[in-house]
């Protein structure tokens, strides 16, 4: 591949809000200096606009985030405090993944009584491989715009990623065939896109409303739902508390499965490919 012959250009400094986008940037711009503001063990809705993040954003050439208001509780504060004009506008060094694709569950009307819902749709879109490929494509354009000297390299990296990703999608679909039509109990709509892709149905949510923690009265109502719908597992993301899930598991006998929410969310998930591998393997294990 042509990647080996990269010129020694100024290193692009990329600030990523979530680890999945840091991983994507590493695929497309292996020479860039990439920082992830959060880990797969941190709820991205609830991040502190802390000094270390202001310092990192101050130095960034590009900020890559999920968008769709996922980071609304902290990203605007980082932008204001970091005083970095380069990353303030999506016309320049700001990139939102959710702006590149059609999101699921967009709402015409949002009311705070509905909980933490996003009018712009569900932002956890990195578990849809086709949407992620669209994001990769748009990110390649963004990287080329900011660093035109390396355009050919970004383009080649994208072609390479795209080819490997497509092959992986075929493999994943084959592997995940037994999961089709399965029902699960979830926590938040964290895996909305994954379920949509693999044909899994989330029949109950541990959260009474998006963003609100599982309450005992709400959990009690789930017992009836479990009996009626017969889901096969309770699925949590790596940053979610397991108390509610354990309570329900004890009373229903359902297994609790903790999926990595992103790269780094378990030992196996070292990049986007192994993240998907691990998530599918964990779901398959829980069904056997």
């Amino acid at each position: 591949m042509a990647l080996a012959a990269m010129p020694a250009a100024a290193q692009l400094n990329v600030f990523s809000c979530e680890p999945e986008y840091a991983a994507l940037v590493k695929e497309l711009a292996p020479n860039a200096k990439v920082f992830s503001a959060t880990t797969a063990y941190q709820d991205p809705h609830m991040i502190q606009a802390r000094p270390s993040l202001i310092a990192k954003m101050r130095q960034a050439d590009l900020v890559v985030c999920a968008g769709a208001d996922l980071e609304i509780g902290w990203l605007p504060m980082l932008m204001m405090k970091s005083a970095n004009a380069k990353v303030r506008s999506t016309e320049q060094g700001l990139f939102y993944a959710a702006m590149q694709v059609e999101t699921l569950d967009k709402l015409d009307k949002v009311d705070a009584s509905m909980g933490d819902v996003h009018a712009l749709g569900n932002p956890h879109l990195h578990f849809d491989p086709q949407r992620l490929l669209q994001v990769a494509q748009a990110l390649t354009v963004k990287l080329s715009q900011l660093d035109p000297e390396q355009q050919a390299n970004y383009q080649a990296a994208f072609m390479d990623f795209s080819q490997r990703w497509q092959q992986a999608i075929d493999r994943w679909l084959t592997q995940a065939k037994p999961l089709q039509g399965r029902k699960v109990v979830g926590y938040h709509s964290s895996f909305r896109y994954l379920y949509n892709w693999l044909g899994i149905e989330q029949v109950a949510d541990l959260e009474p409303k998006p963003g609100l923690p599982p309450s005992s009265s709400h959990l009690a109502t789930l017992l009836a739902v479990v009996e009626q719908q017969a889901p096969t597992a309770i699925v949590l993301a790596s940053y979610q508390d397991n108390r509610g899930a354990n309570w329900l598991a004890e009373r229903t006998g359902l297994p609790v499965v903790v999926l990595p929410m992103s790269v780094g969310g378990n030992e196996q998930s070292q990049d986007l490919f192994s993240l998907y591998d691990s998530v599918i393997a964990l779901l398959l294990d829980s069904q056997s």
Binding site: I72, T90, A119, Q137, S144, S162
Partner: peptide, 20 residues
């Protein structure tokens, strides 16, 4: 992919600004 490479480098983001 061949079609994509020519198309993507001229496309611009669909939305100008985020709601936030």
């Amino acid at each position: 992919l061949a079609g994509m490479t020519t198309a993507i480098f001229f496309s611009t983001p669909l939305f100008a600004q985020s709601s936030m």
